[in-house]
Design a binder for these strands. Structure first.
Lengths: 318, 318
DNA sequence: CACACTTACGATATTCGTAAGGATT
DNA sequence: AATCCTTACGAATATCGTAAGTGTG
C-alpha cells in the first residue's frame, strides 16, 4: 500500500505470464493453477508489478478480478512484450537449428565451378531456410573478403601472407593431366611423369589464378618454363578446348573432378610432389555461425567422399 | 560449460542491459562499470544468457570481446525487447500522468450545454494528450452507457433504478425561473414562490427530459398539473424563446447558469424543496482511469465554484 | 609480465509456499 | 456462511562481490 517512488522495472517473462494468466482467467486461484504457483505467489507478483508501475492494474473483489483502464493498456503492452521475448528466443534458436541464417563464402573459381556446387545443392536441400552466398574470387581476394568480414569463410589455397587469419587444411590437391580421349597420352591410365607432358600444347589460366601459379611452380620445379599455348579464364573453357583436341591441361584434381568426363581422360601426374594445399580460411578468434560450421562439415564430407582414404598426403598412382 | 537443455527464458530487463552494455563496450570491465556491477556479475549474467539460448553470444579473448553471429542476431532482438519494455512502462505512466488516455462521459443535455463545456475546455487545456469524449443523452441512456461500459462516467440525475451502479452526489440543483428582462416577474430579484409562477406561459422540454420530469413533479407537489405552452428539445431554444418574451422557464439552476444573461433575469424558486439531485455514475467496483478521476475533480471544482459555500443542501433564497 | 575473463565461495536479497487474517457477496 | 484476496513468516533459491585461477598477447 505504501506509495513507493515507482521502482525500476524488473519484470521477468514469468511475471508477464502471471499477469496475462490473471487477466485471462479473472481469478487469482485460477491464474495460479495456470502458471503452477500458489495464489499468494500470484498475489505477490501482481503487487510488485503494480508497485513498479505505481498503478492498480486490477480491480479485485471476492467474486471477480477485472482489469483497470491502466491494466488494459498494460495488457496490450504485456502481450507485445511476451511476443517479443518469444521472438527473440525463436530467432536465435532458428539460427542454431539451421532454420535461418546466412552463410557467405568465397572460393577459388576452380573450386566454385567443381566441388562447391554439389555441396551447395546439398546444403540448400537440407537447410532451405539458410541463405547461401558464394563469391568466386582469386585467392588473394578471398583472403581479403574474410579479413574484412564480407564473407564468413573462404575455401582456397594456403597463403602464408595472411597469417592473421585462421587456416585449416582440408586437403592437398595433386595435379592430373586432362586430355582428349583420342589423345596420344590417353592410351594408358597409369600415372604420368611431369617430364612426359612438358612438350605438349598446354591450356591453362592467366597468371593470377592459383591453378596457373601452381602449374608454373610445378614446371619450374622440374626445370622447365611453363608456356601454355592458350590462356583462358574459365575452367569450362579449358574443358571444351581439351575435348576438342586443342591441347592438354595440367589441373589440380579437385578442379578436374567435375568436368564432364565424356570424351576426356585424366591421368595422375606423379613425381616430386607439387600439391596445391586447399583449406578453409576464417577470422581468427571469431566463432562461425552455426550455418557456416555446418557448411564446413558438408564440405569436408564431400571432399572425403571424392578423395577417399588417406588421400591427404602425397598422391600415389591410382 | 555444461550443455543444459536450453532452460526457460528468464531474462530481466537488467540482463538485457548487461548484454547491451557488453556488446557496446566490448569489455567485461567496461560493461560492469556502465551497469554498476562487478565483472564477475557481468560474466555470470552473460553465462546464464548464453546458457538459456544454448549458444555462445560473444567471442572472448583477453584483449577484446566481440559478438558471435548469433550474438548479432540476439543484439537486434535485445534492442527491440528493451525498447518494448520502455514503451510498456512509458504508456502506463503516460496514462497515470495524464499525458495520454481517454475519458468518455455521458451527461444530461441540460448539463452538457451549460456547466460541462467549461470543464471540458479546462480539461483539454490542462491535458492535451487525453482524448475527451462526451455524449449528451437522457438520464436513462446515460445509465445504460455506463452499465455497458461505453462511457466511463455519467453526470446525471439520481435514479434508484440503477442500484447496481455507483452513484455519488455532486450537488442538488434548485429550480430557478428564467424570464425576459422586461417581464412582469423580472421587476424583483427576490425568490419566488411556485404558486406565483403557476399561471405563466411555460416553456419546457418533452417528457423524457429530466428537466421536464422534475418540473412536472414540482408542480404536482404544489397541487398543479404542469402544462407548458411550448415543448422544445434544446436548452438554447428555451433561452431564445424566453428572451423573446414567449414565456418563462422553470429550470434547474445548473441548466440555467450558463445561458447568456443578457435580456433575461433568473429568480430563485423556493418553497417546499424540489431539487434535482445531480451526481456521478460509474460502474461499481471498477476503478476509473486517472483521466476520469481528474475529470471528476475538475467537475467538482467547477460546481463548487458555481454554487459556493454549503450549497449542497436545500437552497435558501439568494 | 600484465591484463582480462572465469570460477569458487560466503553473504545478502528475493521469492515461494503454508497458514492465518479480512472483506465482500 | 462461503469464497477469495492479502499479509506474515520461515525456508529455499538465486545473485552479488571478493578473491584466487587461468589463459592470451
Amino acid at each position: 500500500m505504501q506509495i513507493n517512488s515507482v521502482g525500476a522495472i524488473t519484470w521477468t517473462p514469468r511475471d508477464l505470464d502471471v499477469f496475462l494468466a490473471l487477466a485471462a482467467s479473472g481469478g487469482f486461484r485460477r491464474a495460479a493453477e495456470q502458471v503452477h504457483l500458489s495464489q499468494s505467489a500470484v498475489s505477490g507478483v501482481i503487487a510488485r508489478l503494480e508497485d513498479s508501475l505505481g498503478v492498480r492494474l486490477f480491480d479485485r473483489n471476492t467474486r471477480s478480478v477485472s482489469l483497470t483502464p491502466c491494466g488494459e493498456v498494460f495488457l496490450e503492452q504485456a502481450r507485445l512484450l511476451r511476443a517479443q521475448f518469444d521472438e527473440a528466443a525463436r530467432r536465435v534458436r532458428a539460427m542454431v537449428q539451421l532454420r535461418a541464417g546466412r552463410v557467405s563464402l568465397a572460393a577459388l573459381p576452380s573450386l566454385a565451378a567443381t566441388v562447391l556446387p554439389r555441396v551447395m545443392a546439398e546444403f540448400a536441400r537440407l537447410y532451405p531456410g539458410v541463405e547461401l552466398n558464394v563469391r568466386d574470387t582469386l585467392s588473394g581476394a578471398a583472403f581479403e573478403l574474410v579479413r574484412s568480414g564480407q564473407v564468413d569463410l573462404a575455401i582456397t589455397a594456403a597463403n602464408p601472407e595472411y597469417a592473421d587469419l585462421d587456416y585449416t587444411a582440408l586437403t592437398a590437391d595433386s595435379f592430373v593431366l586432362l586430355c582428349a580421349a583420342d589423345h596420344r597420352l590417353a592410351r594408358s591410365r597409369k600415372p604420368l611423369q611431369w617430364s612426359e607432358v612438358v612438350g605438349e600444347r598446354h591450356i591453362s589460366m592467366p597468371l593470377p589464378a592459383s591453378v596457373r601459379q601452381y602449374a608454373n611452380a610445378a614446371f619450374l620445379f622440374h626445370g622447365f618454363q611453363f608456356a601454355p599455348a592458350y590462356e583462358v579464364e574459365h575452367i569450362a573453357t579449358i574443358h571444351g578446348m581439351v575435348r576438342a583436341g586443342l591441347g592438354v591441361a595440367a589441373l589440380p584434381e579437385l578442379a578436374a573432378a567435375f568436368v564432364g568426363r565424356e570424351g576426356m581422360v585424366t591421368r595422375r601426374l606423379t613425381g616430386p610432389d607439387m600439391q596445391r594445399p586447399i583449406g578453409l580460411v576464417s577470422r581468427r578468434g571469431r566463432s562461425l555461425s552455426p550455418a557456416a560450421a555446418e557448411m564446413i562439415r558438408l564440405l569436408r564430407e564431400e571432399i572425403a567422399h571424392l578423395l577417399p582414404a588417406g588421400r591427404t598426403g602425397p598422391v600415389a598412382g591410382e
